[in-house]
């Protein structure tokens, strides 16, 4: 039973916003939950966080970065096209209880997931500051959306091509230090981004005693607890991301283990990419970059 792509936008060089018509997913979706999609009969089941939902229209929207074969396939599809499957909402909804002063740290595509969480806290009357980090200007996304749901937005790029130059962790430390000096420390940090970033953010917030929630994106197949592929260690206990998460107390997550597990299929994924796209992800990006350049010069 195929699912139609009703809207697709390119947000940056490699970020896309895709809206599926999937009424069953939309009807009970809540912030923090994820869906799984499969592009076609040969596709893998891919988990991705739900960014928006429109219950009336029966639509759900995801924002994804083109990082592998499946996301590149979805990125190459157009409005009106169909994917084979969309199932959800899966996982637990994000919780906003006992939050007052919140610092949200988003890294790259993680901003797409961090933004709805920031909005959730902001809509409940919390003081929200956002630190959003990107590698470079070309991949900056959702700036307006983020600005609309916080008091202060700090845009950071690794190469300084936009906003301030530097890593999110540096800015975070600065803000925590300042808040501490003012005697108004943040009570909660919501951190979503690449695993190494989340690991370092948690190290910092732990120092300052700021409760930190992270959103784990693990390799999974069924998304309903059956395979156990998405297991991770939280406070020494075995947890399944799909049924126990995807949100966990970041100070208790074994990130080194999660980082190792996230790389299990790196080599195979590169092969699948080559087969599906007849090139590598880098070659695809280079080709597009050249096309963009040519178009610019042509004008």
């Amino acid at each position: 039973m195929p699912f139609q792509i009703v809207k697709k936008e390119q947000l940056s060089d490699n970020m896309f916003r895709v809206t599926f018509h999937a009424p069953l997913v939309a009807r009970r979706a809540q912030p923090g939950q994820f869906l799984m999609f499969r592009v076609d009969e040969f596709g893998e089941r891919m988990p991705i966080t739900i960014s928006y939902f429109d219950r009336e229209k029966g639509d759900v929207t995801v924002i994804m970065q083109r990082v592998g074969s499946t996301t590149a396939l979805l990125a190459s599809m157009n409005e009106g096209d169909y994917v084979a499957d969309v199932v959800g909402p899966l996982g637990n909804a994000a919780e906003f209880d006992n939050m007052h002063k919140v610092i949200v740290v988003g890294g790259g595509s993680g901003c797409a997931i961090a933004w709805p969480q920031a909005k959730g806290a902001f809509d409940r009357g919390c003081h929200v500051d956002i630190v959003a980090g990107f590698r470079t200007k070309g991949i900056v996304v959702l700036e307006d959306e983020m600005r609309a749901c916080c008091k202060n937005l700090y845009m950071m790029t690794d190469d300084g091509s936009y906003g301030e130059k530097g890593f999110t962790t540096v800015k975070l430390k600065e803000l925590l230090e300042k808040a501490k000096a003012e005697g108004e420390q943040y009570d909660t940090c919501i951190c979503i981004g690449p695993l190494p970033m989340m690991k370092f953010v948690c190290q910092i917030t732990k120092e300052y005693g700021v409760h930190t929630m992270v959103d784990m994106n693990c390799i999974m197949i069924d998304g309903s607890g059956m395979c156990g592929g998405c297991r991770l260690t939280v406070d020494g206990q075995r947890k399944f991301t799909c049924v126990d998460g995807p949100e966990f107390d970041g100070h208790l997550v074994d990130f080194d283990e999660a980082i190792a597990r996230s790389k299990i299929y790196e080599k195979q994924e590169a092969r699948v990419f080559q087969r599906r796209h007849n090139c590598t992800l880098q070659e695809l990006a280079d080709r597009e970059e050249a096309a963009r350049k040519a178009a610019k010069e042509g004008k």
């Binding site: 039973m1 699912f3 009970r28 969309v86 199932v87 959800g88 909402p89 899966l90």
Partner: peptide
């Protein structure tokens, strides 16, 4: 009906 998760999408 595949892709329909009772307990999540439907109660």
């Amino acid at each position: 009906q595949c892709d329909a998760t009772v307990g999540k999408a439907l109660l």
